[in-house]
Design a protein around this nucleic acid. Structure first.
Lengths: 158, 158
DNA sequence: GTTAATCTTGACTAAGAAGTACAGATTGGC
DNA sequence: GCCAATCTGTACTTCTTAGTCAAGATTAAC
């Protein structure tokens, strides 16, 4: 059970764009540098996000990417689906579903019901979280960091 | 976020062995046929399970595989770890952890905290479930199937 | 209209996971 | 001892995902 690179970096790019604020736009070089991926790869990921309707692009000079929708309307689960597909697509019973037969291959069914339980647990997190939540989280984080006295003991990255 | 083939078939093979009962053993051809994978692939998976300490093998004639431990002591989460690794190994903050710096790259941290939440949700399911639970589930399933009147309308597979 | 900055697209290469093949080692039964 | 059934290990092929590249299309600014 692994998280794909598209999901990891795709979500980061999206949050980065959200961080740019209402109507704020960022270019591919900016995003790729901020997230530590190559411009070519960032471009590929952003294309996926654009086709998914989460971001929109402006071409030409002064162009760039920006969010296509309000952060609170962007559900992370939907973003993940676009970036990496659903967790469990494997399918034994499903392949026989059209035959209107009941599957007595108990191994299949008991394992499958476990996958379902995991899927539900994951969805419970991802379908409730919106991009707004992630941005919020970040603001709280930043506020907290500002309360820390420095600069002696504490070194801030970047 | 995808389930690996090893995890899918590995767990099936394990449940199949559990189904064989206390001290019951199955050969690779038997397991591979029952689960619909090639003998070569089943062998590969079973080797992983053996190295993980979940099953043990007897070689030579009359040989085969059997559970190495009692079903109630086999936690599914541990099996999954051996078969496919942990969900989130990606690591931005982690790479800087040794530097004792606090990460203000908020995109990284907010995304990371989401992954953590998903991981916790998944673990909540997988660390509670044991092989015994899956076998139990199967028995209930079979009992239910037996209550269905047949053979006219209902076709049972396999 | 020219230019430079930008996204767009499809093809390409690299890396990893999935799945196969085969020669070798072990063991029970005769 | 011999044979057949079985697991063991390594190397191999195939397929998917990750990541790169280069040529093209679009646009704002001058």
């Amino acid at each position: 059970m692994k998280l794909g690179a598209n999901e990891e970096y795709g979500l980061r790019c999206l949050v980065r764009l959200g961080y740019a604020g209402e109507g704020g736009s960022l270019t591919i070089p900016e995003i790729s540098h901020a997230e530590g991926v190559s411009p070519a790869y960032a471009a590929k990921i952003l294309r996926i996000l654009r086709k998914g309707g989460f971001v929109k692009a402006a071409r030409g000079k002064e162009g760039g990417y920006m969010l296509a929708r309000a952060p609170e309307s962007i559900v992370i689960g939907e973003v993940m689906d676009v970036l990496g597909g659903r967790l469990f697509e494997s399918s034994f019973c499903e392949t026989h579903a059209g035959q209107a037969a009941i599957c007595t291959r108990s191994v299949d069914c008991s394992v499958r019901s476990l996958w379902r339980a995991v899927q539900v647990a994951v969805d419970h997190v991802l379908s409730k979280a919106t991009l707004r939540d992630l941005l919020q989280n970040e603001e709280e984080m930043n506020a907290w960091v500002r309360t820390i006295p420095g600069p002696s003991g504490l070194r801030l990255m970047q």
